[in-house]
């Protein structure tokens, strides 16, 4: 499936580890349980972790400097745990790498994802990027600080949103 990043669709560059099989060469996303195995892998490929919604980001703290990406999951769009995971990765663990969101996600959630620190969204084939762009540009201000540290605007906690 393609990825949405900065308003553009791009090709997937990651492989997801297949259960019961040896880890592949190249860039690989592994479930948390296989992180020790992946850290011991002898490969030049980049490493990322697939974090389930009920897994604590704290489990990544030690390995984080060696991770290029963390992928968070929406089992259904109503399950908003990934928002808190993304924000904690940025704010508490100071993770500077790629945070991906995958699963059942609506374009209407795009701006929220970006403001919680997600940088890439795994979207279905033939996704109409313009719908996601409109969701991103729907608002000029927000009413609370976010991990993007937008500039304050006027009274209260208002922030300018990047467009």
């Amino acid at each position: 499936m393609p990825l949405l990043e900065n308003g553009q669709l791009k090709e997937e560059i990651w492989q997801v580890a297949i259960e019961g099989e040896a880890l592949p060469e190249g860039n690989v996303l592994v479930p948390l349980a296989r992180l020790p195995e992946a850290l011991g892998r002898n490969s030049d490929g980049a490493l990322g972790v697939l974090l389930a919604p009920d897994e604590d980001v704290e489990a990544l703290r030690i390995a984080l400097p060696r991770l290029t990406a963390v992928q968070l999951t929406f089992p259904i769009f109503r399950d908003g745990r990934a928002f808190t995971q993304a924000r904690a990765l940025r704010e508490h663990l100071h993770f500077k790498g790629v945070i991906r969101a995958a699963g059942h996600i609506l374009p209407d959630q795009y701006e929220f994802l970006l403001r919680c620190g997600v940088t890439e969204v795994v979207v279905p084939e033939k996704t109409d990027v313009s719908v996601w762009e409109r969701a991103h540009k729907a608002f000029t201000v927000a009413y609370q600080p976010s991990i993007l540290n937008e500039a304050p605007e006027g009274v209260a906690l208002r922030r300018y949103l990047s467009r």
Partner: peptide
Amino acid sequence: RQWSTLHPEFTFL
């Protein structure tokens, strides 16, 4: 009210 309006983290509780 303002802080909670379209809060990015707490809209799908």
